[in-house]
């Protein structure tokens, strides 16, 4: 336990946020304009639409040591390009269920929908996600060498 809390203080938490240009990026802007207090862990990458999200971007972020990945876009039925987030929703849900199978903590990845006017909701989302990641601590990443591994026998 003590080692875990030590590790927490070793470096600051970094969360990668992929935000859709039309809704969530605007929502984050609204939150800023309204001067809502927000955690500073989030590094925002602006994307044209959540339909642009390749699940591999999320996987790559986690493998390369991002402590959390947050994807946020327009609410379903409100996509600027009509259907982008419908595609994204399926892909991200498959990924979310798949991550624990490979040994990743699925709590490190979250997807959500926030519109441009929802500054307050954005504040809640980002505060809540940041708290979750702080609770999990820094992402240890992959082991570069494996000394002993559990055996699995299927047949």
């Amino acid at each position: 336990m003590s080692s875990k809390s030590d590790a927490k203080q070793e470096r600051e938490i970094k969360i990668v946020g992929f935000l859709c240009n039309w809704c969530s990026y605007g929502g984050a802007d609204t939150a800023g304009v309204c001067r809502f207090r927000q955690p500073t862990d989030l590094r925002i990458i602006r994307i044209p639409c959540t339909g642009r999200i390749d699940p591999l971007m999320i996987v790559k972020s986690l493998i390369q040591g991002a402590d959390g990945v947050l994807v946020s876009g327009c609410h379903p039925n409100d996509c600027h390009y009509a259907v982008g987030n419908f595609y994204a929703r399926r892909r991200m849900e498959v990924l979310k269920r798949f991550l624990p199978y490979m040994g990743f903590q699925s709590d490190r990845f979250r997807y959500t929908w926030v519109s441009a006017s929802e500054g307050q909701i954005w504040q809640q989302v980002v505060t809540d996600f940041s708290e979750t990641i702080h609770r999990l601590g820094p992402n240890p990443g992959l082991h570069q060498t494996v000394d002993s591994a559990p055996a699995v026998s299927w047949f």
Binding site: Y101, G103, P150
Partner: peptide
Amino acid sequence: PSVAAVEALSLEDRLLFWENQLD
């Protein structure tokens, strides 16, 4: 049945299992 055998491991063990295989 093979997927179930991997899922029977804990999260940490699953990561070690895959790392050991993919190494």
